[in-house]
Design a protein around this nucleic acid. Structure first.
Lengths: 177, 177
DNA sequence: TGCCATCGGAAATAATATTGCGTATGGCAG
DNA sequence: CTGCCATACGCAATATTATTTCCGATGGCA
């Protein structure tokens, strides 16, 4: 069968200049699949108020158009032995594009670095990291610190998580900030 | 049919003290479902090397045991009109537990705040926010700044994203930091 | 008014999910 | 050493879903 991981084709890569108007049903589909990505098409169709065939066509179209980029099971990190979540703020010595790209590639090769954002202002990169324990996290930071072009790494441990769900607000946009 | 969103029952809430040993097949199941949460059970079974029925039983068990906390379709935020991703660092005036809890509740009510982490050290909270544009983000920051108990909010825009996938490393843990 | 593109739905078929049940395996007590 | 039991697998049957095909309704537009 076809994998449900949407291929990273030209359309998605080029930021999809393809015009595409989402109607209310599309929004509801996205909302439902965000909340339960494994919902059957029959159930999804029932919820959005159309029959399964057009519903499936819409889902496929949303995937192809790049609105849906994939489906993930969410795992409980702590349950899997990752007790530590921490942020690392990295300053580089050089911000030349080639050096930025090199650092990004380096970071992508580190499994414990879960997210990496290039920032405006003082800090160059903000990394969200996980680790089974503090000493592993320290080892990671040590590696980062000694990586090429890294001038300085500041870290902060997270004490607890108040909110964390990869859900994009839909339809509610205009209502509340 | 049964929803695939795993209920937040006692076991998960209490951090599941239930002993549970994951074998190699369980790890492979988690890995596959992390990469494609919508994979059919037949395909999953094929990949992990067992027949569909025991595979399904394992998946259900992993859900019940709290290893799998849900399934999500990942959406392309930019494609949906969220051009801005930014971090906000928040200092509170009081760190009394009741005040922390109140701030967490406040933050959970804000759809544009996608993540909220309580930190050790200087900053009290780190918030990851999205917004359709800068002025909306400014409005959010203004609200945050004037929220009860908030002393100070510093923000940083993200310029680009180098890595961002809610995937927990599995099995590779011992190999590389 | 008539053509055409778009989109939904019914029906048929192909795949999957799910259940029930029998069997193999390994730990363990007798 | 043997038999019991718990555990986990897989086959086979059934219930649900996914997917395709095709037809009809709707609305823009020449």
């Amino acid at each position: 069968m076809l994998s449900r991981v949407v291929p990273d084709d030209a359309a998605t890569t080029l930021e999809s200049p393809v015009p595409y108007r989402l109607d209310a049903i599309d929004h509801r589909i996205l909302k439902e699949l965000q909340e339960d990505g494994r919902m059957t098409n029959v159930e999804l169709a029932r919820r959005v108020g159309i029959s399964p065939p057009p519903c499936l066509r819409r889902v496929r179209a949303l995937e192809e158009a790049g609105f849906i980029t994939g489906y993930r099971a969410l795992l409980d990190e702590k349950r899997l032995g990752y007790e530590v979540t921490a942020f690392a703020m990295v300053h580089l010595s050089s911000q030349a594009e080639a050096d930025l790209v090199a650092f990004e590639a380096y970071v992508r090769s580190k499994p414990l670095v879960r997210e990496c954002w290039m920032l405006s202002g003082e800090i160059d990169f903000l990394l969200k990291c996980v680790a089974p324990n503090l000493s592993t996290f320290q080892a990671l930071v040590a590696e980062l610190t000694s990586a090429p072009n890294v001038r300085n790494v500041k870290t902060t441990l997270t004490l607890r998580n108040s909110k964390n769900d990869p859900i994009v607000p839909l339809e509610l946009d205009r209502l509340a900030v």
